[in-house]
Design a protein around this nucleic acid. Sequence first.
RNA 1: GGACAGGUGGCAGAGUGGCUGAAUGCGCCGGUCUUGAAAACCGGAGAGGGGGCAACUCCUCCGUGGGUUCGAAUCCCACCCUGUCCGCCA
Length: 424
Amino acid sequence: MIDIAALRADPASFEDAWNKRGLSVDVTALLALDEEVRHLKAESESLRNQVNVASREIGEVARSGGDVAAAKQRVREIGDRAKELARSCTEQEEVLTNQLLELPNPCLATVPAGADASANAVVATWGEPPRLDIVYKPHWDLATDLGILDLERGAKLSGSGFVVLRGDGPRLVRALLTFFLDHLTRQHGYTEVMVPHLVQPSVMRGTGQLPKFQAELYHCERDDLYLIPTAEVPVTNLHAGEILSEADLPRRYCAYTPCFRREAGAAGVGTRGMTRVHQFDKVEMVWLAHPDRTEQDLAALRGHAEEMLQALGLHYRVLDLCTGDTGFSAAHTYDLEVWSPGTGQWLEVSSCSTFTDFQARRAGIRYRPAGGGKPRLIHTLNGSGLAIPRCFISLLETYQQADGRVIIPEVLRPYMGGQESIGG
RNA sequence: GGACAGGUGGCAGAGUGGCUGAAUGCGCCGGUCUUGAAAACCGGAGAGGGGGCAACUCCUCCGUGGGUUCGAAUCCCACCCUGUCCGCCA
């Protein structure tokens, strides 16, 4: 959520930022509503003050045996009026807040302007596609032939978009997960957390999934709990409503969770195999960070994700997302895409973003400056580190051999009991 | 799921209708003392919002939401959460 006071102070820059996201916002109406809310608040507070003062007097008079019947009647009327005004103030404030909750985070000034994904900038490329003299099979054939992927039975159990892995398939997934978590905790001092996969609506609101993206979420109606679409949601909200000390920043967490996404409207294009599924595994990196270093922090976060792709030896590129393609809550995003030689596509395996204070304001995450003083909102950042299915795809396709085997990269072998290949 | 107990400031813990936004202790910050530290003593210190150039001032917040009252941390109702015991269970 944006800061209404900031909008008041500089409406033009917000309007401009939203325009760059392809959004036209009636800022004038927002500010008029804000004005009304504050007017109502001032009115009701001044009446409230009259009630407080008068009540004190009534108490004193009554104690010394005076007659307070008339005063009571008068104060009650003022009180009723104050209550009325306070009520309509709350109502209007709610209307305003609901509107604010639907507005995206303005992008940082450094983000390239552009309408859609075609304006994203490729800022780095690492490695090269594999060059064996073979026809590179797509993973849905390769993995099915190896007996480690069963799309049909996944669909039988849960419908399309759900997969069953078997044998070395799950084993490879566990190896990837453990490698990622070990790397982040041991090399970079992240704290690993294991969190609930079902969360309350307020938690979804904190990171920005609600109210706008309800349709993307699985919801358990009976308990009013949502299945998380990413570990970002519970992990970022770990410190919701808290005031951290400045010395504790940045707090860096990593977490493995399954992720559940309805992918409403995404059926059809590019959904073959396991490139886009309703349930997948992912390790997520989440930073609760100091607000003054957000771009440096984002660069570091992205670096951590890149290191792991490099360790796996996967050909990848980095996109600097343009304003039109940046997610709702984010202010600046880098996407990491791995090469899938079997399908001839780049697949997004990580999206590293800073959310500036947008999520922190929604979730109420602040820190107290070391020298004392008022609490300030922190900045939140996160990035996949990494999403399993697409790493799995790229890895299988990249390391496939003429004889149908798949070579396991060195870094994963310790996690697979020294196994050097799958199949054959 | 049933019974009982309880939810107050960073923590512990008073407070059961009126200068209580909240005693006291610990912790924290500043100062005095000390070569330095500790101890002791003095002082400071919650959050959000409105108004004012400012000194300052006003409103709200004692799990959440309603209600009673001139006035609620204190009384009433509902809900949530925690603890203990019982039941059930991986």
